[in-house]
């Protein structure tokens, strides 16, 4: 990983020095131990602050979309002769690159608007799991060496295995190497046991209907509708989200549980063929709602019904924007 980090800085610095990109989106050290935060660098000297390790959580594709769409909006007010393009360099691991592919499939920007610095990924640390491993105490210091994570808490030092604190989505990740990249840094990461990907969904499907409903209600009752999941999600880029739309107001804003349930149900439903399982929504959720259980079902169904894997290739068409004449119709009612 050290090597990857060094090369990534070099490549980012080179792209900025050669003026091939205007900004590079990457990660820098966070203010708390064992955290990294997204950062935007615009000069080659700043490349030194880029980091890349298991503490890099957020999917950066969100910011690429934000920067490009804001820039394009601003360019509308510029005289034609002064119009200029903004190229965004982005440090992308597997899930980030898939999100970029989704943006490209959905014609959000052009391929030459982004320069992808591909990095291999071995998974990131789930803050909630790490906190549990540290006994719920505040982590004062922490470091990662190899597959060991050492954390210092008030009551002493603890060593945890990196594999035990990786996020759920990373454990069975099928795409831990970028699907598109202009510059690839480091060697491809070893494959993960992806065949276990849908184990949890399969188990959930076997529960009785009332058990499933009870779980759904329980999870959704935690939701405080802060919309952090939506804001973190790279596929949620609508200018006006359906939850904020009025005239007609789509989702009610009352304290009624069904409003929250329907908000979550619809937000997740909007992820059909668009969720890359990057875990950004889960990681930002302050209430620990198990969103992944539901999103993964859509992923599984889209694969079963339409053989579609979100963002796996630039040639793919979003599954709900296309059709086949022989699509399965077993759900159609015949009297």
């Amino acid at each position: 990983m050290e090597n990857v980090e060094k090369k990534m800085r070099e490549e980012a610095g080179k792209l900025l020095a050669d003026k091939k990109v205007d900004v590079v989106i990457g990660y820098e050290r966070g203010t708390l131990p064992l955290t990294a935060t997204p950062c935007f660098i615009t000069s080659p000297e700043e490349a030194e602050k880029l980091v890349y390790d298991a503490t890099c959580v957020q999917n950066l594709a969100k910011f690429a979309h934000d920067i490009i769409s804001t820039h394009r909006e601003a360019q509308k007010k510029v005289k034609p002769e002064d119009k200029r393009k903004k190229v965004v360099g982005i440090v992308a691991r597997g899930c980030t690159s898939r999100s970029l592919v989704i943006h490209l499939q959905e014609r959000q920007y052009d391929r030459d608007d982004i320069v992808v610095i591909g990095v291999p990924c071995n998974g990131y640390i789930d803050a909630k799991k790490l906190s549990a491993a540290a006994g719920g105490e505040e982590i004062l210091e922490g470091s990662i060496s190899g597959d060991k994570v050492a954390v210092k808490v008030a009551s002493g030092e603890k060593n945890v295995s990196l594999g035990d604190v990786l996020a759920d989505n990373c454990l069975t990740c099928r795409f831990n190497n970028p699907v598109i990249s202009d510059v690839m840094v480091g060697d491809p990461a070893p494959a993960k046991p992806a065949d276990k990907e849908f184990d949890k969904v399969d188990a959930f499907e076997k529960l009785s209907i009332e058990e499933r409903w009870a779980y759904f209600v329980k999870e959704m009752s935690k939701c405080i509708r802060c919309y952090a999941c939506r804001n973190a999600c790279p596929s949620c880029y609508c200018k006006t989200c359906f939850v904020e739309q009025t005239m007609p107001a789509f989702v009610g804003l009352s304290a009624d549980q069904t409003d929250t349930q329907i908000f979550q149900l619809l937000r997740t439903y909007h992820m059909v063929g668009r969720c890359v399982d990057c875990g950004s929504c889960v990681s930002v959720c302050p209430m620990g709602v198990d969103l992944r259980n539901f999103l993964k079902k859509l992923d599984k169904d889209a694969f079963e019904l339409f053989e579609h894997r979100a963002g796996s290739s630039l040639e793919d068409v979003p599954p709900l924007s296309t059709y086949r004449e022989n699509d399965k119709e077993d759900f159609i009612y015949h009297p």
Binding site: L298, L305, E325
Partner: peptide, 24 residues
């Protein structure tokens, strides 16, 4: 021409999803 084909995909996903979360 193709409206109901698109609808079929949408509803196939929706019905499976609603059943999954525990709707009859």
């Amino acid at each position: 021409i193709t409206g109901n084909y698109s609808a079929r995909r949408k509803f196939a996903m929706l019905k499976r999803y609603l059943t999954y979360i525990g709707m009859e």
